[in-house]
Amino acid sequence: MLGRTANDLFWMTRYIERAENMARLLDVGYRIVLLPRADNPDQEGWRSTLLSAGCDDGYRAKYDDYDTAHVLHYLLFEPENPSSIYACLTAARRNARIQRTAITREMWENVNRTWQEFFDFDSSRITLNELPQVVDWIKERSASFRGALLGTILRTDGFQFCQIGTFLERADNTARILDVKYYVLLPQAELVGSGIDSVQWASILRSVSAHRSYGWVYRGGFRPWNIADFLILSRKMPRSLWSCYQEIMTALDALVVPDSGPPACHQLAREIVQDLANAEMTEIFQTGLHEFLIDFISRNNRLGHEIAAAYHFNL
């Protein structure tokens, strides 16, 4: 497979995953904004959404308030924001169009239809009232794409690069949400073990679609400790860092050709997999959750670059 093709497939799935994650963050932000609270609720809800999405700096370069209409426009439709839904769907569709020969007809039609239907939403008129509909639609389209991918593509290298793109993006997203939300919500480190009754805590879980599954696993109220454990180390939670790295490692292993050593990036991935397998929550909290997550995000990024270099993504 051409290196350029691998690059396009990797980014196609990354952008679709990113669009889905953005939709979830919007869902959470919307719920926070709707909470009956005294002081400046919009301000806080949207700011934490922008921070989690890594879009706050870009947003503030453009606007000096957190007006709902502005935030929605910036996260949904702004072409200059590379993480906006519009930018993600456009980039994914561009990659898919270039690589139509490398993907199945079902995948292509899925991406193409998503992109076309997105224009049915009127960018000048989306308000909080329409937001749930938009969010549901994006999640549904992303699930449908993933279904087409898993159900139709040949299990050759192209599939592995699609998987790697998806799970690198998902791991990055989970780590960032946890990092940002946790610090917004938890100023005092000594409280990590105690139970807190807060809708805000639920929002972390909602942003990774794990609000209800958390209850099944931990059978209790929201404890910061458990939430961190669920998102980082859980073997059951499909968006945990541990789960993402199982998928990445499986995909990388499938790329290895018999009789030739794997490129260096495989070693880095294996290290991350092992670190996640051996980690204990106690230890993570002792060294600092923030430090742990920052280190993870940086290694996750580095892995992306190493894979790109090892498989000649950029000619």
């Binding site: 051409l2 350029r4 691998a6 498989y311 000649h312």
Partner: peptide, 17 residues
């Protein structure tokens, strides 16, 4: 941009060289 001439052949740049 995917193509190069090497070792007396037209070659394409793949993920494995």
């Amino acid at each position: 941009r995917d193509l190069v001439i090497a070792d007396g052949h037209l070659q394409m740049k793949t993920t494995r060289g």
